Structures are given as structure tokens and as C-alpha cells.
Amino acid sequence: MSQTQKAMSQLISVFHKYSGKEGDKFTLSKGELKDLLTAELGDIFGKTQDKTTLDKIFKDLDANADGVVDFQEYITLITSITMLCNESFKKGK
């Protein structure tokens, strides 16, 4: 498997590691998203203990306003963070 395929597989695995603990296994509730952000992206988001910050992140991600974050909305988050990291990398050169 190529590095890109491995990365895609990992993104899918991480989503499903947290989704479905509180309901639909194909979406993230606010609590599941908090757990994912803390465990998987803690270096970027910190502990996400601030309810206002978590509410804003969740609202911004929940593009269709259905009260959950689906896989496409999750990938939008990952893509945005990756793009920001790439910009920081380019500036550091």
C-alpha cells in the first residue's frame, strides 16, 4: 500500500474509532468530536475543555446543521488543518 493509501486508511480508522460511541456509527456527536480532537489533535487544539470553543468548532464543522459531524465534515476539518500546517511549513523554509 502506498503512503497516501495508508494515510487515507488511517483517517478513516480514526473517524470510526470515535464515531458511534453515542449513537450513529457514521457520525460524531459533540462529545465524540471532543474526544477525537483531544486524543488525536491535542497538540493543535489543546485539551478543548472550553465549552464555547468546542461549540464553535462543532457548529463550524456541522455544515448541514444536523447536529452531528459526518465523515465529509470531518475530512473538511482535516484538510483545513493540513493546509494550515503546509502554509506554516512553507513560511519556515
Rank of each mutant, 00 (worst) to 15 (best):
K17E: 15
K90T: 10
I75C: 13
D35M: 13
Q49S: 15
M8N: 08
D60I: 12
T79Y: 15
S19G: 01
T82G: 11
A39S: 14
F58Y: 04
L41I: 07
F89K: 13
L11Y: 05
Q5E: 13
A7Q: 09
V68M: 10
I81K: 03
L11A: 12
T53H: 08
L37F: 03
C85Q: 13
G20V: 02
D55G: 06
K25I: 06
K6P: 00
K93F: 15
L61S: 04
L61M: 12
Q72H: 08
K17N: 10
M83A: 11
L37V: 08
S80M: 11
V14M: 06
L33C: 08
I57W: 08
G67R: 04
D43T: 14
G46L: 08
S80D: 04
H16W: 01
S80F: 06
E73P: 02
S29G: 07
A63G: 03
S88Y: 09
T52G: 02
K56D: 11
D24G: 04
H16S: 09
H16L: 02
L54D: 05
F26W: 02
T79P: 00
T48W: 00
K90I: 13
T53N: 03
S19L: 00
Q3H: 12
K6W: 04
K6R: 11
K59H: 09
L61T: 10
F58N: 13
D70Y: 01
I81W: 02
T27K: 06
K93V: 12
T53Q: 13
L61E: 06
T52P: 00
I78Y: 07
S19W: 01
G31K: 15
S88P: 00
L54R: 07
Q3R: 11
I57N: 06
L33V: 06
L33S: 06
G23P: 05
D66E: 11
I12A: 02
D55P: 10
F15M: 06
I44Q: 04
N86R: 10
Q72A: 09
S13K: 14
A65T: 14
G20D: 02
F58C: 13
T82H: 02
T52M: 09
K51Q: 12
L41Y: 12
S19V: 01
K91A: 15
Y18S: 05
S29I: 04
L54F: 08
K91G: 00
G31C: 07
L28E: 01
L61K: 08
G92A: 11
M1S: 14
M8I: 15
L36Q: 06
T38D: 04
V14A: 04
L61Q: 07
K93W: 09
F26Q: 10
Q5V: 06
E73L: 07
N86W: 03
L41E: 02
F89Q: 09
Y18P: 06
M1W: 03
D35L: 13
A39Y: 01
D62N: 14
F26M: 08
K59Q: 11
L54N: 06
Q3V: 07
E73M: 05
S13R: 12
G46H: 09
G42L: 09
T79D: 01
K21F: 00
T76A: 15
H16A: 05
M8Q: 11
H16V: 01
Q5C: 02
Q72T: 05
S9V: 01
A65Y: 04
G46I: 12
N64H: 07
D43Y: 07
T4A: 15
S80C: 09
Y74G: 01
D55V: 06
G92D: 07
Q3C: 03
Q49P: 00
F89N: 11
I75H: 00
D35Q: 14
K91L: 14
S29H: 05
D55M: 05
